[in-house]
Design a protein around this nucleic acid. Structure first.
Lengths: 111, 111
DNA sequence: ATTATATATGAGCATATGTTCATATAAAGG
DNA sequence: CCTTTATATGAACATATGCTCATATATAAT
């Protein structure tokens, strides 16, 4: 039996082995939720869709900052947008992850 | 009516206003869950308590790296430890947050 | 006391992250 | 066309993050 095989076995014996891809997705997802600006944006989008400028004004953020963060969230499919002329209305696109955020907010606000 | 009061009102009219402290706790919590090394440690601790060296060996990490990350997790009360001589047995200490992690892993592994 | 074992800690370093500034793109109105 | 409005993008910068190395601490064993 060669060493690589042994290593494979060792890893599969870990109680709940996490493969690299799952690990990457999980870490990326939580990374998205780990920044105050992104949390505020996602929280705002819980109520309704909002345009980029509207988000920027309501949260007192730079238009550029909002746009950059929305691109980040879009790439992870946490938000989507609908276009109307030159205006882009963004909204949440992953109920499951938004639910995680709501749970954490609930948990945190009770302390 | 002065401007500060108006601003206060504006903020409270946001559908679900997040106060600074809640925002900070939520972001810190998700930051803890956003690093692959910490995810692997917490995942390992789901099954049982483990010593620092045991964690390091099982996950193929530096003892120093594990110790640093455990301190980080400890400070957020996500893990606790039990001492036996020179050995420290670490285990998870926040079921709710561990539950969030499990949900995310479940969500991620289905894709 | 000396040595071995287990863990913690701090400095240093490379990389990642988030914001801002300036500018680009693109649709709409005149 | 030219201008206005809304958004996107890239470079630059400051700060945060995570790892490693060396070393400190603390208990146990001989």
């Amino acid at each position: 039996m060669n060493e690589n095989l042994e290593k494979e076995e060792d890893r599969s014996e870990e109680e709940h082995y996490l493969d690299e891809e799952t690990l990457f997705i999980v870490s990326q997802t939580f990374k998205a939720l780990s920044d105050p600006t992104r949390i505020r944006i996602l929280n705002l989008l819980c109520s309704d869709e909002h345009s980029v400028n509207d988000i920027a004004e309501r949260l007192d953020l730079n238009q550029s900052t909002v746009s950059h963060q929305l691109r980040f969230l879009k790439q992870l499919r946490l938000v989507k947008y609908r276009r109307e002329g030159t205006t882009f209305y963004y909204s949440n696109d992953d109920d499951h992850i938004i639910n995680l955020l709501k749970q954490a907010i609930d948990h945190a606000s009770h302390h």
